[in-house]
Design a protein around this nucleic acid. Structure first.
Length: 216
DNA sequence: AAGTTTCA
DNA sequence: CAGC
C-alpha cells in the first residue's frame, strides 16, 4: 500500500550548483507560483507586454515588460535602464512585494545576503520564442547578483562562460525553478533555447521569466 | 548590442 | 554521440 501522505506532500526544494557563484534552486517558487502570476497580471494591466527592437533593428521574439524603480529597454538607441515605460511615458509599475520577497529569499539561499533589487524584467516566451546568448551588463553594480525565476512551460537555459565562445551548459528549467548568479559568475553569457510547444496548468503554452537585478 | 550564425 |  502506498503512503499517500508522501504523494500529496509538496516537493522539497533542492539546490544544484552550476559553477562557482551560480546555483539553481529547484521548485523554490512553486508554492507561490499562482501569486506570482497574479503579480504579472497586475503589472501588465499598467505596462502591457511588448516586443522590443534591438539596436540592430530586429524585433525580439520574447515579449517583455518591467516593474520596479528601473526598467530595461532596448530600441534603436541601444540598451539601457529607464525610470519610465517608453510606451506610456509613465513610471514602471511598483514591484509587487511577493516578487521582492521571493527574489531576496532566493539570493540569500544562494549566498548573496545583501541583494536589494530595484528592477524586475518580466519576459513572456510563447512557443518559438528564444533569447540569444548575452551578458547582463547594463547594471551599475556587478557586486549584486541576478535572480531569474521560471514560471509555466519548461525551457532549456543556456549558461555559458565569460566569453561568448565558451560552450554553454544546457540547464532544463521548470515552473518554480530559480537561477541565481553573481560574484565570479555575474557576467557569464546566458540565453534560452527556442521554446517548445507545451501545456502548463497555470500558463498554457507560455513561459514567464522574472529577472531581478540591481540596476543603479 | 538580448536576431541569426556553423559543414551533415 | 545526443540533440538540434
Amino acid at each position: 500500500m502506498t503512503m499517500d501522505l508522501f504523494e500529496h506532500s509538496p516537493p522539497e526544494p533542492w539546490a544544484e550548483s552550476l559553477c562557482e557563484g551560480a546555483v539553481v534552486l529547484r521548485r523554490f517558487a512553486s508554492v507561490s507560483g499562482a501569486e506570482l502570476l497574479a503579480g504579472i497580471e497586475r503589472v501588465t494591466a499598467q505596462a502591457p507586454f511588448r516586443q522590443m527592437r534591438t539596436p540592430g533593428g530586429h524585433i525580439m521574439s520574447v515579449a517583455m515588460t518591467c516593474c520596479g524603480d528601473w526598467g530595461w529597454v532596448t530600441d534603436a538607441r541601444g540598451y539601457r535602464y529607464q525610470h519610465q515605460d517608453p510606451v506610456s511615458g509613465d513610471p514602471w509599475p511598483a514591484m509587487p512585494e511577493v516578487f521582492r520577497t521571493l527574489a531576496v529569499e532566493a539570493a540569500t539561499k544562494a549566498g548573496y545576503d545583501d541583494f536589494e533589487p530595484d528592477s524586475c524584467l518580466i519576459n513572456r516566451y510563447s512557443p518559438g520564442a528564444r533569447m540569444g546568448l548575452h551578458q547582463d551588463k547594463n547594471e551599475d553594480d556587478f557586486g549584486q547578483p541576478i535572480v531569474s525565476v521560471s514560471l509555466g512551460a519548461p525551457a532549456i537555459f543556456q549558461f555559458g562562460g565569460l566569453r561568448r565562445g565558451d560552450r554553454p551548459q544546457r540547464v532544463p528549467l521548470e515552473h518554480g525553478d530559480v537561477v541565481v548568479w553573481g560574484g565570479p559568475a555575474r557576467l557569464r553569457y546566458h540565453g534560452v533555447l527556442t521554446l517548445k510547444v507545451a501545456d502548463h496548468p497555470l500558463t498554457g503554452a507560455c513561459r514567464y521569466n522574472l529577472t531581478f537585478r540591481r540596476a543603479r
